[in-house]
């Protein structure tokens, strides 16, 4: 009897334990997983073949507010600008790196994974318009592409400057630039960069643009993109003749030596961090800008 009781107790306890041992199949189809979907258009197919397949870069052009700062008022791109802008971005940005590094491996590894396009410019509350942003080494935002034209050399140069500026941020976010760069012109950085008087010539203080005076991170991005888009010859000329109307700025030894010091750090950084010859890259960018303008 004693055993029977114990036996029954055991059976009941076993039942309790087993009863809840329910196997669940974990193959439920989660609705909505995998993001937005729509019927693929010829543009989507072209982008897949030109950007996603070779470089795993998603060129996102359809409206998605969540990709942007909500305080910005924007509109989506016009469809017929998407392919020309992408073609030109490939030409003036990806192709020069491919040529300099030998093949497409470098860009396959080091490109941001998403480029988000906005049709309109991004006007901020202080009245400044933002042309582009880079985020966390992974994403570049480009604004104002609806008014882009490859026949307009100014716009092409601006686009080249923008993408190389943002891409410098991405490279810096992946491998930091030497700390020595911050110490070349430590006193030149100012929050007032957008309201500098014309006689406060940035070139004579060791900066290529006023925006470069915002902070060292922007400084190196501006320097790299300015040198790439201007080309070596024009950059060197501008260095010695920055503002003819201000005699002080001609052959200004301070500005020249500071910018040469920064240039050396940049060239060393590209060589040491990424094994790239900066001057070859500069030449390749020049060729490609020429090609885009004569497409």
């Amino acid at each position: 009897m004693k055993y029977l009781k114990s036996f029954i107790s055991l059976v009941i306890i076993a039942c309790v334990v087993i009863a809840c041992n329910k196997k669940e199949t974990l193959d439920t189809n989660i609705t909505g997983l995998g993001g937005d979907s729509w019927i693929q258009s010829p543009i989507d197919k072209w982008l897949y073949d030109s950007m996603i397949k070779p470089y795993n870069i998603e060129m996102k052009y359809k409206w998605d507010q969540s990709e942007f700062d909500k305080s910005l008022i924007l509109v989506p791109p016009t469809e017929n600008t998407v392919i020309p802008v992408t073609q030109d971005i490939i030409s003036i940005w990806i192709t020069p790196y491919n040529k300099t590094s030998g093949d497409s491996t470098f860009m396959k590894i080091n490109t941001p994974k998403q480029i988000m396009l906005s049709g309109s410019i991004a006007l901020q509350s202080n009245g400044n318009a933002v042309a582009g942003l880079a985020e966390g080494g992974l994403k570049i935002l480009l604004f104002g592409i609806n008014s882009y034209s490859r026949k307009d050399s100014g716009r092409v140069a601006d686009m080249a400057h923008l993408i190389h500026h943002e891409y410098t941020h991405i490279l810096n976010q992946k491998k930091n630039y030497p700390i020595a760069f911050n110490k070349v012109t430590p006193d030149g950085y100012t929050g007032n960069w957008s309201a500098l008087p014309p006689e406060d010539n940035s070139w004579t203080r060791g900066f290529v643009t006023n925006y470069a005076r915002k902070e060292p991170g922007e400084d190196i991005a501006e320097l790299v993109s300015t040198m790439l888009v201007m080309g070596r010859a024009r950059y060197d000329y501008t260095l010695y003749h920055p503002f003819p109307e201000y005699p002080d700025s001609l052959n200004n030894p301070t500005g020249i030596s500071l910018l040469r010091a920064k240039e050396k750090i940049v060239v060393d950084y590209f060589r040491d961090a990424y094994n790239l010859d900066f001057y070859s890259l500069q030449t390749a960018v020049q060729q490609q800008i020429y090609n885009v303008l004569h497409r």
Binding site: Y61, V75, P77, G119
Partner: peptide, 22 residues
């Protein structure tokens, strides 16, 4: 489907002229 079902004109057309900040 976001907070509500939505109809989004997700590339530029005449409707966007009204909203365009330019």
């Amino acid at each position: 489907a976001l907070q509500q079902p939505e109809l989004i004109f997700d590339t530029y057309t005449y409707l966007h002229l009204l909203a365009d900040p330019e």
